[in-house]
Design a protein around this nucleic acid. Sequence first.
DNA 1: ATAGGGGTATTCACGGCTGAATAGGATCGA
DNA 2: TCGATCCTATTCAGCCGTGAATACCCCTAT
Lengths: 295, 295
Amino acid sequence: MSNWDDYRFVLAVAETGSLTSAARQLKVSQPTVGRRITEIEQRLEARLFERVPDGYRLTDAGTRIASQVRLMGLQAERIEMTARAPETRSDRVCLTASEGIAHAIVTPLLSQFRIENPEVEVDLLISNRSADLLRREADIAIRIGAPGNDTLIGRRLGQAHFGLFGHDSYLARRGMPLMPDDLNAHTIIESTGDIAGLPQVVWLRENAPKAEIAYSSNSILNQMQALSMGVGLMTLPTYLAEDMSRVRRVLGDHYNRDVDIWILTEKRLKDEPVIRSVLDFMGNEIQSALKRLPV
Amino acid sequence: MSNWDDYRFVLAVAETGSLTSAARQLKVSQPTVGRRITEIEQRLEARLFERVPDGYRLTDAGTRIASQVRLMGLQAERIEMTARAPETRSDRVCLTASEGIAHAIVTPLLSQFRIENPEVEVDLLISNRSADLLRREADIAIRIGAPGNDTLIGRRLGQAHFGLFGHDSYLARRGMPLMPDDLNAHTIIESTGDIAGLPQVVWLRENAPKAEIAYSSNSILNQMQALSMGVGLMTLPTYLAEDMSRVRRVLGDHYNRDVDIWILTEKRLKDEPVIRSVLDFMGNEIQSALKRLPV
DNA sequence: ATAGGGGTATTCACGGCTGAATAGGATCGA
DNA sequence: TCGATCCTATTCAGCCGTGAATACCCCTAT
């Protein structure tokens, strides 16, 4: 990992198509650009540019890398923006939760919260990446699993229960699986992206390696849409399943996973009164909501 | 915009807490690190570190910037990963669309597509950032707006129509707004995050600057949940509104925005047969689905 | 053919960045 | 109180990366 600045040169050459014009743009000399490029090609052990008579052209590998570098450039710009932007701490609280938790638990609670605390504005950020707190894109997170980082603190609110579900139309067509092995002859709805690594998802994938995958997405709510169209079987927490019509649980105790739900915040924020009020309200309400759930 | 490499130094000092140990980690000398830090502080015109007796500590501004720099570091790592990873092209097609389009249009079409093309696996990525194609996290995007980048090509599929909607329970309680000005006495459901800048969202914000914001989120489907609980008024495309019960349109022609829907892909990909099949199927089906929509 | 305008590769003097050395401040424990 | 041990700031010789200059390659228009 050395010299990020070289990437700036890659970007310029990729954009302008020649060392000379890249040098003009970067306000350095042409030999310098040339050297930097060969240097980074050696470091990455990959040929990024093809030397053509009228300049430098991206190779296939180079194209792939250049698109990544472009993002790095955007991030560099964002840094400068952040530096120039004045420090703001709004009286607005940003809460983040996964799609499913937000849909079934947080959104219904939020309107109640607003009635009791009309002066607090709450913004709900749907996201499955737990980096959001550290990035300061959110102030409070409701997540599966304990704080993984020591700048975060939190409180365990209870458990969510996951089961495997199918729509009546699917089950009528394909029959009801009775044992985990039966899943290999079934069709499932798969999770990808940020939610691909959740334990309940991994279990299904490992126990039904031969099952056909009919639909895969990073969005639980969209998976539920596919579920209710009878596309396949799907892992679902009971708090989402109980509101769906004509969907029933399969495999019962053979597929039964419990996960801990936590409410988290950054250490620095925990004593701010606005944060505190959301933290306490949401914590208590979700805690009792989780207790009411079927197991 | 100069010398991205300085950010690497910022990161090291932020992590280690002193010039000396950062120098050790970066395998350069302590004065070099010190110079680079003061240099970038001057460039950004911001004090990133506080000089404390036992080293350098991030200031508040520094903390904000450091978290951005960390992302740049992740991106740098990703570049190196990309460079080392062998070129792979799976037979899986990744499609990306916004939450709402995915929910109402793409998911229903996907099961049909699978029946006609059982050999093609399609993965659906829900996202509102249009960078996904450039990042190569997805192969095909269905988006609002034309390709903004010349490595992308696409085809216009038609228009979606946006209106302002309220739930019966809300309208009974608060009355029906008749003119745009009336909105200032109403409560609205607001879009934040990636979808905050969409034209239909901006229109509402500008035309109802005094309206109370009852709920704000980056997820349309969660906003719809709030809408159906009668929390407030909300901007919605007709393809989502038509499936909601007890929700009716307000302001009629006074709030009426049309946006173009496009299907996009990267130039290099457009001739791959697998991509082609998804592109054609989705393009045609969405095109005729959009034509059937109420205006 | 040939001149001219695009480009890259190579050379070499030089200026700026680097690092070793050093001075000096703060804290801690004997 | 003093030495040890962290740390930063400053200095200055030396080296490395830079840029002007140049050779040369390729293409095109005259």
